[in-house]
Nucleic acid binder design. Structure first.
Length: 522
RNA sequence: GGCUCGGUAGCUCAGCUGGUUAGAGCGUGGGAUUCAUAACCCCAAGGUCGGGAGUUCAAGUCUCCCCCGAGCCA
């Protein structure tokens, strides 16, 4: 089985902000989870680089559009590198290969009779790259979103006959699970129920775009071009770009993860385009929520944007991943609160989980020859911690399959809390003060170490580096979640009570998670 | 303006088809403990469930109106 998932292709109008990082991080967790389960994953991200807005932004900086796009998309690429995002592909819509795919796709759509010429007249917002419905006689209308003046356009455009797909789209969005979370479904249903209207897919006199074959002077509308980036991304760099190959390279996608604002494009326009071109449809479109910061919208005007690069620098990957995935229900809007951020990271990761490993490893080493204690009677699968671990594993998997990172994280945390509690109840440090308790202490510590190993294993998709560090302290090999191995899943195999080898040497304990001490606002 | 989603302890949220004293984690206060990253464990305080009206023997949970936030469409 293969699993293809995508982030949106980020628009290179500006450098990356926390929102894109959030989406990408979440996708990374999904990609890692699927790989760990043994799936052949194609994790796609990239940049969307055409359109008038880009052209103007570049001009304003005295750059050619290409130079501007090169710089910004390189910024994205590097950022994802720094975050150790495990994307398999990074696609740019200015790639000549993409041009080829778009043109092939268009020819299919046109051959299917879905392209018509039409006159597009109206007020246009360059920032939205959309025509607005303001009345023609309006004087100096402004875009409600961008607060910028609209421009009057009167041009002959090519239209995609979306209206022909009314029924198919209705059937598609009615499919349970296609639109996720399900709370977003109605919004799209109502939109479709109003009747789908053909939409324009070309612009004239806009040089910064892909030329429409057979229609001189026309370039593709950015959205038409951008969505197709998901297909281009699937093709290998060293093969001729050929649309006919995408099915063999991982299409259709199992999942498009997007921000809730672009749900319409992905759940309505995009499937219709694919139907027209005779390509299979993605299985699921997940629209996640937006992040605010300390209760306020982030924006340049407020001067409160949280830069993903500086966040990384000050806090590290694990901390940020944990906070965003564990505290913000995926799908809902969320608020980034610095105090809470450091509270949760310190409490969950450093204290509850990190310290559990540290204290247990210390005891085992001290009293059992710097090794995992022997278990003479054999490892009992009926041990309360074994039961707890198994349950945590089940909850984790169930949650991850639903993209419920929060609940998945809680499963790990609960296991660690239960294990800490067990340790306190057994109090091996007391038992060891009397002779003859070594066997009891040994089996207690074994169970606690083993449960801790489970925590590390489960944590792998969410906080891969922390997981590796924990496993290393337990003398275990790291779990590779960053690349598809096509091998039987070591991760699933690791979810077996008793996987920790008695007698295995334990390295000297090192804190696996530093506490965050954030004095200044980030 | 229309549609959709949300408004539950200081904070982030659970609360299924209406039914005993509304739950969890964080934060706060107290206790216990020393194996450990002043960590872990236990206990406690804290809510007129956005506001108002209604349906019902019974509503956080259903209906209507209003207020606030977000997204979409205008």
């Amino acid at each position: 089985m293969s699993f293809t998932l995508t982030t949106p292709l980020y628009y290179v109008n500006d450098r990356a902000h926390l929102g894109s990082a959030y989406t990408t991080l979440a996708c990374d967790a999904i990609a890692r989870y699927q790989r760990l389960k043994g799936e052949q994953v194609v994790f796609i991200t990239g940049c969307d680089e055409h359109g008038q807005k880009i052209q103007r932004t570049a001009e304003a900086q005295g750059l050619s559009p290409q130079a501007h796009c090169d710089a910004v998309s390189e910024g994205y690429r590097q950022l994802w590198n720094q975050w150790q995002i495990s994307n398999d592909r990074f696609v740019r819509t200015t790639d000549p290969r993409h041009r080829e795919i778009v043109q092939q796709f268009f020819k299919r759509v046109e051959a299917n009779g879905d392209v018509v010429e039409g006159r597009q007249q109206g007020w246009y917002c360059v920032a939205c790259e959309e025509f607005k419905d303001d009345p023609a006689e309006a004087s100096a209308p402004h875009c409600a979103i961008h607060q910028k003046p609209l421009e009057w356009r009167d041009e002959l455009n090519l239209f995609f006959r979306l209206s022909r797909y009314q029924q198919q789209i209705e059937a598609l969005i009615a499919k349970p699970g296609f639109i996720a979370p399900s709370s977003r479904k109605k919004e799209v249903e109502n939109f479709v129920a109003q009747g789908l209207r053909d939409f324009s897919i070309s612009r004239v006199d806009l040089p910064w775009g892909i030329p429409v074959p057979g229609h001189p002077g026309h370039t593709f509308y950015v959205w038409f071009d951008a969505l197709l980036g998901y297909l281009t991304a699937l093709l290998d760099q060293n093969e001729e770009p050929d649309l006919a190959l995408v099915n063999a390279r991982g299409w259709p996608a199992q999942l498009h993860v997007i921000g809730k604002d672009i749900l319409r494009f992905h759940a309505v326009y995009w499937p219709a385009m694919l139907l027209s071109a005779g390509l299979p449809l993605p299985e699921r479109v997940f629209g996640h929520g937006f992040l605010t910061r300390e209760g306020q919208k982030m924006g340049k005007s407020l001067g409160n944007v949280l830069d993903p690069e500086s966040l990384l620098e000050h806090c590290g990957r694990d901390a940020v991943r944990w906070y965003l995935l564990r505290d913000i229900p995926f799908g809902d809007d969320g608020d980034f609160q610095q105090q809470r951020f450091s509270d949760l990271v310190n409490n969950d990761l450093a204290n509850t989980i990190g310290n559990l490993l540290n204290r247990t490893s210390s005891m085992a080493r001290r009293w059992f020859n710097e090794a995992v204690p022997p278990v003479p009677g054999g490892v009992a699968a009926s041990h309360p911690l074994a039961v707890a671990a198994l349950r945590a594993g089940e909850q984790f998997t169930r949650a991850m399959d639903l993209l419920d990172f929060r609940s998945a994280a809680e499963a790990c945390l609960h296991l660690a809390i239960t294990t800490n509690g067990y340790l306190n109840d057994q109090a091996p440090w007391k038992l060891m003060k009397q002779e003859g308790n070594e066997l009891q202490v040994g089996s207690d510590l074994y169970a606690v170490l083993e449960a801790t190993r489970w925590v590390a294993v489960l944590l792998a998709p969410l906080v891969p580096e922390l997981s590796d560090r924990m496993l290393q302290q337990l003398g275990q090999a790291p779990l590779a979640s960053g690349a598809s191995l096509g091998a039987p899943s070591a991760w699933l195999a690791a979810q077996q009570w008793g996987g920790l080898q008695p007698g295995l040497a334990l390295p000297e304990p090192q804190p696996v998670m530093q506490r965050l001490e954030l004095e200044a606002p980030l």
